[in-house]
Each structure stands twice: as structure tokens, then as C-alpha cells.
């Protein structure tokens, strides 16, 4: 193999890993919310974009250090989620078939945020790029790696591990899983189901925000990322199994790697077709997903 091929292959793998981790993060966020409150949040893509745009403003316009700005933005997602929860989400906790109401609600939120973005950021630019978090290159043997992407990957990996640990071992994680499995039984065992709902909504969105912030650090982006992300996260959630964190992690990585491979060898339309096709097949023949609980 020539060096050029290896460089292409290597960049494909790193891009794939990076995308995969971001996909996994967002899909985990979406699946936590679906698993607990049955809200298929189609607005996740807009939340993702919101985080990315805020980071762009904070670091490009106001000159904050991106790392500090990222922390602040993820922190801001908490009151944002709380406000939404109080205003809209909790009204539906006891509604039968609420997932369809939530789905439509989140499409409404999508429209509003998309409208706001085009009024505000839309008049500034259609492509957004942040200064790198860290500069320079690292040589991996003879092959150069961009430090900035390596850093973003490292943070994404740490976040995923932390999230997985939280859900696996922490008291909240256990309560969440109890609610996932059977909310009536969980309520009988003294789990405060509504508190778990609220926590899931806040945590899920925070994770989506983190994904957006990390993506903005590593790549330039435009508005279309919102729709792409929303569809991708839904596809991952459905294929992995709604409510399955493990499914979201595994399928997210698979999607990232295929996306990276496909975008080198075929057109992005083909990639989109194949996601949608895979999602359709799963919906029709195994609606509980590959990693059904």
C-alpha cells in the first residue's frame, strides 16, 4: 500500500471514529429521552445546531475560549431543558399515546428554532467555522494528525465513558433503567417517576448539546446539519432499539464509520438512502430494534 492510500484510510478511520462518537452521543441523548418519557425528540438536530451556533458566537464574536464557552453552553442547556419541561413536556406525562403528541410537538419546536436561526444567524453566514481548540499536528509515525480533532475525539470518548458509567452504576442510572423497563413497577418500588422523567429530559438534551459543541470544534458546519443529525439520530435509535443505550452506542459507531467510508467511495445521497432504507426495514420487521431490551 502506498503512503497516500494509508493516509486516506487513516483519515477515513479517524473521521469515522469521530463522527461515530458524535452520532453515539446524540443518539444516546435521544434514546434516553425516548426510553423514559416516550418523547421522540425530532428537535434534537436543532438543539445540536443551537449548541454549535452558540459556541461559534461565544468564541468568534465574543472572543471566549472555546473550551470555557463549551462548558457554559452545556450548562445553559439545563435551564433551557427545565423551562421546556415545565412549559410543554410535563403536560403530556399522563396522556396515552403521547409519543405521537410529543413527536408533533418536537416538529413544532424544530420549525420555531429553524425560523429563529434563519432570522438571526442566517443573515450572517451560511458556513460556520471555529478557531481550533488546540493547534498543531502530531505525527503518528510518518502520518500527520490534526491535534484539534484528536482532542475532540478524546473528549467525546471520555464523555461516552462517563455517560455509560453514570447510567450503569449511579443511583440515577439505576432508577432510569427501572423506569425504562416498567414504569408502574418502578413507581411501586418508590422511584419518583416524574423526577426521573425530568432528569432524563435534562440529561438527554445536555448530551445532545455536548455533541453539537464537539462537532463545532472539529468541523465547519451549516444549517443542513440539523436535519441530517435529526434523521441520523432517529435512524440510530430505531435500529439500535428505542431506549437501548448500548444500541445507540454500537449503531452510532457503525453509522460513523460507514458514513466516512461511503462519503469517500459514493455520494452522500447514497448514504442517506441506505440509512433510510435500513431504518424502514427495521421499522417493518423488527420494530423493537436490534438491541431490544
Amino acid at each position: 500500500m502506498s503512503d497516500a492510500t494509508i493516509i486516506i484510510l487513516l483519515s477515513m478511520i479517524t473521521t469515522g471514529l469521530m463522527l461515530g462518537m458524535i452520532f453515539s452521543l446524540v443518539a444516546v441523548g435521544v434514546t434516553i429521552i425516548y426510553g423514559s418519557i416516550w418523547m421522540p425528540n425530532a428537535a434534537n438536530g436543532q438543539f445540536f445546531l443551537l449548541a454549535a451556533l452558540l459556541l461559534w458566537s461565544a468564541s468568534v464574536s465574543w472572543g471566549l475560549h472555546p473550551a470555557l464557552a463549551a462548558l457554559i453552553i452545556i450548562g445553559l442547556s439545563v435551564p433551557f431543558s427545565y423551562a421546556l419541561e415545565i412549559l410543554l413536556i410535563r403536560r403530556f406525562y399522563d396522556v396515552p399515546n403521547r409519543n405521537i403528541s410529543y413527536f408533533v410537538l418536537s416538529l413544532g419546536i424544530t420549525q420555531i428554532l429553524a425560523g429563529i436561526f434563519s432570522i438571526t444567524y442566517g443573515i450572517w453566514s451560511d458556513q460556520f467555522q471555529l478557531p481550533p481548540l488546540v493547534g498543531g499536528l502530531t505525527m503518528l509515525g510518518p502520518f500527520p494528525m490534526v491535534n484539534n480533532r484528536l482532542a475532540a475525539m478524546l473528549i467525546a470518548a471520555l464523555l461516552l465513558v462517563a455517560l455509560f458509567t453514570l447510567l450503569r452504576y449511579h443511583r440515577y442510572g439505576r432508577a432510569l433503567r427501572a423506569v425504562f423497563q416498567n414504569r408502574e413497577a418502578a413507581a411501586l418500588r418508590g422511584v419518583d417517576v416524574r423526577a426521573v422523567y425530568r432528569m432524563s429530559f435534562v440529561l438527554g438534551n445536555a448530551v445532545v448539546f455536548a455533541g453539537g459543541v464537539l462537532f463545532a470544534c472539529a468541523y465547519s458546519f451549516d444549517f443542513s446539519i440539523a436535519w441530517t443529525m435529526a434523521i441520523t439520530a432517529f435512524a440510530i435509535m430505531i435500529i439500535g432499539g428505542p431506549g437501548s443505550v448500548l444500541g445507540a452506542l454500537v449503531i452510532g459507531m457503525v453509522f460513523g464509520l460507514t458514513q466516512a467510508a461511503v462519503s469517500i467511495f459514493a455520494s452522500p445521497t447514497i448514504a442517506a438512502f441506505s440509512y433510510l432504507g435500513a431504518m424502514l426495514v427495521i421499522l417493518l420487521f423488527r420494530p423493537s430494534g436490534l438491541f431490544a431490551r
Partner: peptide, 20 residues
């Protein structure tokens, strides 16, 4: 023109929440 999407979004939410 700019606020069209926002208005539609608010309408959708309004229907779901207030006028099922």
C-alpha cells in the same frame, strides 16, 4: 417572510397543547 417558520411552529405547538 422571516417569521413564517416561527409562526407555523407556534401554531403546531398551540394545536397540540391547547386544541387537540
Amino acid at each position: 417572510y422571516m417569521i413564517k417558520d416561527v409562526v407555523y411552529g407556534l401554531l403546531i405547538i398551540g394545536v397540540i397543547v391547547l386544541l387537540p
